[in-house]
Design a protein around this nucleic acid. Structure first.
Lengths: 349, 349
DNA sequence: ATGAAAGCGCTAACAA
DNA sequence: TTGTTAGCGCTTTCAT
């Protein structure tokens, strides 16, 4: 069994090459030119290292240099289109910078968020990306105490820079699209646009409601309180509310702004009970994107939060080395019905 | 600026408490009972540590103990329902064991897979979960050389234990369901079941085709080669092939076994061009699950690979400390049409 | 152009 | 019951 041999260290390579450990170290970590090691020495050492299957112990290096080469990200769940595409981007950008990404989900549990941030800090992550935190400021305090640069994605923190999707703009685009393309109906109540789903305590939803309000008021002169049904994100609740709305109106409204994929799923489970022609005089929009939206029996406008752009901006912020707490806005994309979006990683299944 | 202070070490705590570093170490890492440290000493130290905001430097611990407390997983992409739910399970199980999960995607690039495995090994991961590898054996060699326990998920490796979804069983269940519920049509060609999508070079698909073959032969006495259209996973290709098939048959076949979500997406982009009644005499099944399948205008049976079970079995294997290279089979679930599956993390958006 | 040696923060013998 | 000490593998002055 040769398989159980230990991994070689710089001391092993030093012995084999006749050079000292520090020379080996320099030869192998790229600093040899700066350290004025002879080219032939360096090459020789590198050759031996390769032969021996040497690779640096990154824990040891991290310990010595007090930076690990790890970048951390915390998010609520992996199992979600938005967050998983963030992971994908986060990772790609980390690789571009020679860093090793560590992504952890916290299940929207404040305790878990704190524990996770502490764990990542214990592994000496060089910086931390935080998304979907329930209590940003508590996390910032921990990071600040540990001297770890951090940035919030999609949800602003007061104590650190943040990159957020421009919810107001996205909702405005979607609202306007709905209002401008929806049919004129005789029934005044059915002829209006309705906003469904989400929680106005939530930063993102509050901004979207605000934009919906503004746009509807702008286009139709006024808006009534019952046009906004912020019934939370749970699919079941959305199902009930959409059904109640349609029962009240005697049919689908002319316009429907659905404020999240989960609410959309809920609405859909009511929609499948409807005949196809029920959708003839209704324009539907969904804030959030899922490719399957393209395959429904009725067209639906979707807003796609550009996760890659959010992540890219965050990295750029760190690259720039700026230090003041900024709020960086990223515009979302309005996706026309029946569009199958091809993203950066679209060809991979 | 108190924020820029360094993190306290056991030496700081030692000074403050009057105890020695090793006593502090034991008091703070839980080994103090075994080390026969007095309870009051331990408590005092712990109190001071908390006050000082101490947390262990896990790199240093890892270096000393030669195990990092990290568990690695590599997968092709994050941005995929199956893999992201694997991530979710992988992480939950890691947490249960007090380990820190590091998940890396390799974009189905053999070079990237190797680089990533090497990186994770350099961080001294305690074990490695590998899924969707293009060249398992090469990765095993690296892991074996570095003495890192590893396990393959969903794709068997020859040199290490593997937990795989029982593709044969899943395909058999789905095939049987399709065959037993599909309508009897007068047209003999339309009256058959067809298999579309996937690549027979691929381990999983090969097993599925095998099961489809067997089941069809068993139920209808024989099978013709043109019932199997393994046209790859690309949506575009599936669109073309489904369209060609329907053109040839003069309508949808009585049964259609679609062999992946991506192929299904492709089929759907043809289906949206069809009138709803086109689906009246066609039973559709899809190997792989997406909740949006529940919202289509026609019913579709889906097979859900139970990612949580795959991961759980893999962890159990390590827990058991067994060493021989096993092949562990996990049965997938057949999901009836219009079912919105509620998983372990279903309530989290 | 290269080597010797200290030390990053922690744990684990071994002493006491 | 607790302290002393060596050393995990690496980087980095400081010498030479």
């Amino acid at each position: 069994m040769t398989g159980s041999r230990q991994k070689p260290t710089i001391y092993d390579i030093a012995k084999l090459s006749g050079a000292s450990p520090s020379t080996v170290s320099a030869a192998l970590n790229g600093t040899w030119k700066a350290r004025r090691i002879g080219e032939k020495t360096a090459k020789k050492i590198q050759k031996i290292a390769t032969q021996q299957g040497y690779s640096a112990n990154l824990q040891a290096r991290g310990l010595r240099k007090a930076r690990s080469g790890l970048v951390g990200m915390i998010l609520p769940v992996h199992d979600n289109r938005f967050f998983s595409s963030m992971s994908q981007s986060f990772e790609a950008h980390a690789r571009d910078r020679g860093l090793c990404p560590v992504i952890a989900s916290t299940l929207r549990d404040p305790q878990e968020e704190i524990r996770t941030v502490e764990t990542l800090i214990s592994y000496a992550v060089d910086s931390l990306f935080i998304t979907g935190a329930t209590n940003p400021d508590a996390l910032s305090e921990i990071c600040i105490a540990a001297n770890v640069p951090h940035i919030y994605i999609d949800l602003p923190g007061k104590l650190a820079p943040s990159v957020v999707s421009d919810n107001h703009l996205g909702a405005e685009l979607l609202s306007r699209k709905i209002l401008q393309t929806m049919p004129k109906l005789d029934d005044p109540l059915r002829g209006r646009a309705y906003f469904i789903g989400g929680d106005t305590d939530d930063y993102a939803s509050a901004r979207r409601v605000e934009a919906f309000r503004k746009t509807v008021t702008h286009e139709s002169g006024d808006i009534s309180g019952d046009q906004i049904i912020a019934c939370g994100y749970a699919p079941g609740q959305a199902t009930r509310e959409v059904k109640a709305l349609c029962d009240r109106l005697g049919g689908l409204p002319a316009g429907l702004f659905v404020n999240s994929l989960t609410a959309f799923e809920g609405a859909l489970s009511y929609f499948v009970t409807l005949p196809p022609q029920a959708f003839d005089d209704c324009v539907i929009g969904c804030y959030d994107y899922d490719p399957f939206g393209a395959f429904l029996q009725f067209p639906v406008h979707m807003v796609r939060q550009n996760s890659d752009k959010l992540i890219a901006r965050a990295y750029e912020y760190f690259d720039a080395g700026t230090t003041k707490a900024d709020l960086i806005m990223v515009e979302p994309d309005l996706i026309p019905p029946r569009t199958i979006y091809k993203g950066r990683f679209a060809e991979l299944g």
